[in-house]
Design a protein around this nucleic acid. Structure first.
Lengths: 218, 218
DNA sequence: AGTTTACTAAACTGAGCAGTAAGATTTTGC
DNA sequence: GCAAAATCTTACTGCTCAGTTTAGTAAACT
C-alpha cells in the first residue's frame, strides 16, 4: 500500500532527499571534490531536476549548510531540580548530537570551506556554538543566583564547561574519522570534565562531587 | 653579488620552495580545489619540474603534510623552577604556535582531508597533539611527585589543561578565518584557563592562584 | 670546450565537470 | 480520459585539470 501524497508534499520530500544526499556526498569529498552528477545519483534524481530545485552548486551548498544548522541543536531543557544531574544530562544530550558521525562530517566540511565561504562559517558559529553557549550561560547565571556556583565571567565559565567535556574527544574525532571515540571513551572525558568543572566552580564542591559520584554509580 | 651554490643545494632549496608554495595554495583552496598549475606558478617553477620532484598531486600533498608536522612543535622546555610560571610560559609558547594563521590553515586542511587521507590525520594526531600531550603529562606527573598537583589520571589532567587554555579561541578561529582572536582575547581565555586548572588540580590552590595573579600583574 | 644535468615554455591528451537543451515519459488535476 | 506540469534520459558545450611530450636553453661539472 502506497500513501498518496499531494504534489507539494512530494516536492518537499524530494527537496529534502536532495539535501540529505548532497550533505552526505559533500561531507565525504568536500565542495570542490563533489560533482553534481554524484549528488544527482545519490539523491536518485536527474541532474536537470537538481538545477530546478537549486540553481547552482554554490546555492545548493549554502542551502545545505543553512538548513542543517537549525535542526542540530534543539535539545535543550536545562531546568529540572538538581544542578548536578542537570549538568550531567545536558552533557550527554549535547555529546550525543555533537559526536554523531554525520554531525562530525558536517563540522569538518564547514571548517574546510570556512575560507571559501566565510558566511557559512559565521552562520554556523552563531547558530551552533554561540547559541549553545548562551544557553549554558543562562543556566550558569541562574545557578549563581541560587548560590550553587561562583564565577565572575559567565561566558568563560560556559566555555570551560564545554571545553572540559567535549574538547578532547571531538578534536580526536575531527582528525581521525575512522576512530570516533566510543561511548565509554566519551564517558571518561565527560565525567572527568564535570568533576573538574564542579571542583572549580561549585560553591560546595565536596557535596556536588559526591552527588556526581552517586549519580554515576547508580 | 650572487652566491654560488652547489647543484645539490639548489635542488634542496627548490624542493623546499615547492613545498612552501604548495602548502600555501593547498591551505587556501583545499586538495581538490588546488591545481598543479597554480602550485607551479606560486613556486615559480615549471609544471614538469613539479612532477620531477614529486611524482603526483597526491604524493606532493602527502609530502607536505608529513614534512610540516615535525617543525611545528619544537617549543618545549618545561622545567625552570616555579610551576605557575612554567605553566604560564608553556601556555603562551603553545598558543603562539597554534594560533598562527598559517598553522590554523594547515589544521583546517588536515581536518578537511582527514576522510580522504586517513593516514595524514593519524600522523598529525600522533606527531602533534599526542606528542604535546605526552610532554604535558610528564611535567604534570613530575609536579605530582613534587606534591604540587593532585590527580588520578595524568592524561585527563593534561587534556583538561589544553582544553581550558585553547579550546575556545582555537575553535572560533577554525570556523572564522577572518576573525582570528587577537592576543588580548587569547590572553583572556588563557589566563582564565590557568586559573581553573590550578583551582581544580593544585594541592595549594590559594597560594598558586596568588602567584598567578602576581605574575599577570607584573 | 664540451658534456651532462636541470630546467623552461608551450602545447597536447584524455578525462571529468558545471550547466543547458531537446524530446520522451510519467504523474497529476480535473 | 485528457491536458498540463513535472521529471526523466540523453547528449551536448565549453572549460579545467592531471599528467606528458617536445624542443630548446642555461648553468654546472670535468
Amino acid at each position: 500500500m502506497k500513501a498518496i501524497l499531494k504534489r507539494s508534499d512530494k516536492k518537499e520530500a524530494k527537496r529534502q532527499r536532495i539535501l540529505d544526499a548532497a550533505l552526505e556526498v559533500f561531507s565525504e569529498a568536500g565542495y570542490a571534490g563533489t560533482s553534481m552528477d554524484a549528488i544527482a545519483l545519490a539523491a536518485d534524481v536527474s541532474k536537470p531536476t537538481l538545477y530546478m530545485y537549486f540553481g547552482s552548486k554554490e546555492q545548493l551548498f549554502e542551502a545545505i549548510m543553512l538548513s542543517g544548522r537549525d535542526e542540530m541543536l534543539e535539545t535543550f531543557d536545562l531546568s529540572s531540580a538538581d544542578m548536578v544531574s542537570d549538568l550531567h544530562s545536558f552533557a550527554w544530550n549535547y555529546a550525543d548530537v555533537v559526536m554523531k558521525p554525520q554531525f562530525l562530517s558536517l563540522a569538518r566540511l564547514i571548517i574546510a570551506e570556512a575560507q571559501r565561504f566565510p558566511s557559512i562559517g559565521k552562520a554556523y558559529q552563531e547558530a551552533g556554538p554561540d547559541r549553545v553557549l548562551r544557553g549554558i550561560m543562562d543556566y550558569l547565571e541562574q545557578q549563581k543566583k541560587n548560590g550553587r556556583l561562583t564565577f565572575d565571567d559567565a561566558e568563560l565559565a560556559a566555555q570551560d564547561l564545554w571545553a572540559l567535556i567535549l574538547s578532547a574527544p571531538r578534536n580526536q574525532a575531527l582528525h581521525m574519522p575512522d576512530k570516533i571515540p566510543k561511548r565509554a571513551a566519551i564517558a571518561r572525558y565527560l565525567n572527568n570534565g564535570l568533576k573538574v568543572f564542579l571542583k572549580a566552580y561549585s560553591t560546595k564542591p565536596k557535596k556536588d562531587l559526591e552527588a556526581l559520584d552517586r549519580l554515576l554509580n547508580k
